[in-house]
Design a protein around this nucleic acid. Structure first.
Length: 500
RNA sequence: GCCCCCAUCGUCUAGAGGCCUAGGACGCCACCCUUUCAAGGUGGAGAUCAGGGGUUCGAAUCCCCUUGGGGGUACCA
């Protein structure tokens, strides 16, 4: 058996969808596992809905995920590669025309002059009669003279494919044997619009045949298209590829995942700070499992274990909580320098949005890593976590400076005492190990709970009650700025501006 | 309506006739660790395997029916 050829064929009618990414991933995994070829083809014939911006979003997203294709079109400065070019449908128009001629020549297809109004009326009548909608076959047996008459009438023709009769069966790699009676296909279907542009069911077959695609891996929503396509393969006298229909990714209400009910754009996940390792890991485990208890796996480890026939048949609800957990797992596994690089764009974004005033240097960020990695569910959480380090003026409710067990006077006194200790200690070496013992000693001699003292200091220097470890935070802030913030907190308490 | 597909904890899943009084993970709860928050560790609640019939010495696993859910029914992809 020769190496399989698989493909992802996105249509640039919207940003890269999670579902498309998952289908691309499974194709990629199958290709890598079997030593096959992964092809990218752009289905850009829907000129009305498609756009270049979407095209870029899709390609960028695929690249970002690490789903690099072996063959594909020229895009964003990248040259086309592969022996089956072109890899975009608008450039393949002649091949559809040629295929159409072949079908017409053997009468496997015929021109249909029905107007939209006629078709509409047919459909309505069928609906009223409680019959399943199907093409009436009005133009199926027109004589040459009758056709000529309609052309003379100025009518243009769509091309319909003769569906015939019988049962189409195929062995789906994930679903097993599927059989559909051709009489349920809705009659002869249109393959070329009256304006001459080809339709999906036709172009996929012509392209997949031309590109020698041997395994078609796609979403379950295409299952019912498959018999039509098999009929087309036969009429075109091309071997029928294998099919594998993947279970759908679902909204929480178990309907097909949609923009209306879920976050579906991959770019939105990227913008939130999900990392590719996590998204790939998560998506691969939606509808498929290794059969072992391994859960956190790299794309290469997954490719090694991947088995299309073990893919589930039932749909899977997209669970963001689990994705976040995996994201945390992967963030903690990242190499520190890599993490600094990946964090950078999020810091820049915070800066641009005015959420912070100063950007840390790589060294500063790197030093912070040990205390922030385990607190980062997403990269985008960096600002929430330690943004207080990079703002000039801290804004917070002074009431937070007073721990539950204390009153304002105690808080003020504690902060003054702490300030003195920190000022003295820091003069030698401003390090966590140097700061902690004297502050603990202070709490002890005064009979304060360490937690209370530390909390007062924490709020004074960060403006928040939940932060990374206090002493690391003080060090990251620097001696001068820490003292400055303590002074401001003390002043705030003295002004009596703390509502109880 | 018609056609097709599917069905194990809330969610993702293991399970391919006896190893299952159904295992893991996320989430949830408790405890431990602990200056807060996380992370980590330990433990717990949570599924009569949709229901009913078969087949079999034996069924979550095989067959049938019912129910429920989903997908498709375009001169969209």
């Amino acid at each position: 058996m020769t190496a399989p050829r698989v493909r992802i064929a996105p249509s640039p009618t919207g940003p890269l969808h999670i579902g498309t990414a998952r289908t691309a991933l499974f194709n990629y995994l199958y290709a890598r596992h079997t030593g096959g070829t992964f092809v990218l083809r752009l289905e850009d014939t829907d000129q009305a809905r498609g756009s270049l911006a979407y095209e870029k979003d899709i390609l960028d997203g695929l690249h970002w995920l690490g789903l690099h294709w072996d063959e594909g079109p020229e895009v964003a400065g990248e040259a086309a590669r592969g022996p089956y070019a072109p890899y975009r449908q608008m450039l393949r128009l002649p091949s559809y025309a040629e295929a159409t001629e072949r079908l017409l020549a053997v009468d496997a297809a015929y021109p249909c002059y029905c107007t939209p109004d006629e078709l509409d009326a047919d459909r309505k009548a069928q609906e009223a009669a409680k019959e399943p909608p199907r093409y009436s076959g009005r133009c199926a047996a027109l004589t040459a003279d009758e056709r000529a008459a309609r052309v003379a009438d100025g009518r243009t023709a769509a091309i319909r494919f003769r569906v015939g009769s019988g049962v189409v069966a195929f062995d789906d790699i994930v679903r097993g044997r599927v059989e559909i009676d051709v009489s349920n296909l809705g009659g002869d279907f249109v393959i070329v619009r009256a304006d001459g542009t080809p339709l999906y069911n036709f172009t996929v077959v012509v392209d997949d045949a031309a590109m020698d695609i041997s395994v078609v891996i796609r979403g379950e929503d295409h299952l019912s298209n498959t018999p039509k396509q098999i009929l087309l393969y036969r009429a075109l006298e091309h071997p029928v590829p294998q099919f594998a229909h993947l279970p759908l990714i679902l909204n929480p209400d178990r309907t097909k995942m949609s923009k209306r009910k879920s976050q579906t754009a991959v770019s939105d996940y990227i913008a939130e700070g999900f990392i590719r390792e996590a998204l790939v890991n998560y998506l691969a485990l939606l509808g498929w499992a290794t059969g072992t208890e391994e859960e956190v796996l790299s794309i290469d480890e997954i490719a090694e274990r991947f088995d299309l026939s073990a893919v589930h048949k039932g749909g899977a609800v997209f669970d963001r909580e689990r994705l976040e957990w995996l994201n945390g797992q992967w963030i903690r596994r990242l190499d520190p320098d890599d993490l600094v690089d990946r964090l950078r764009p999020f810091i820049e974004a915070d800066l641009a949005a005015g959420r912070i005033d100063i950007a840390p240097t790589d060294e500063e960020l790197r030093a912070l890593l040990p205390v922030i990695t385990e607190r980062l569910p997403t990269l985008g959480a960096i600002g929430d976590l330690v943004g207080f380090l990079w703002v000039r003026d801290l804004a917070y409710d002074p009431a937070l400076l007073v721990p539950k067990r204390w009153d304002e006077a105690t808080a003020g006194e504690a902060l003054r005492a702490a300030r003195t200790v920190i000022a003295e200690t820091g003069a030698v070496a401003f390090e966590a190990d140097e700061l902690e013992p004297p502050l603990r000693a202070l709490a002890e001699t005064r009979g304060w709970k360490v937690g209370d003292l530390f909390m007062a200091i924490r709020v004074a220097v960060t403006g928040r009650t939940a932060t990374p470890p206090l002493f690391d935070t003080l060090v990251a802030l620097g001696r001068e700025r820490a003292l400055e913030r303590l002074d401001r907190a003390i002043a705030a308490l003295q002004e009596g501006s703390v509502p109880r």
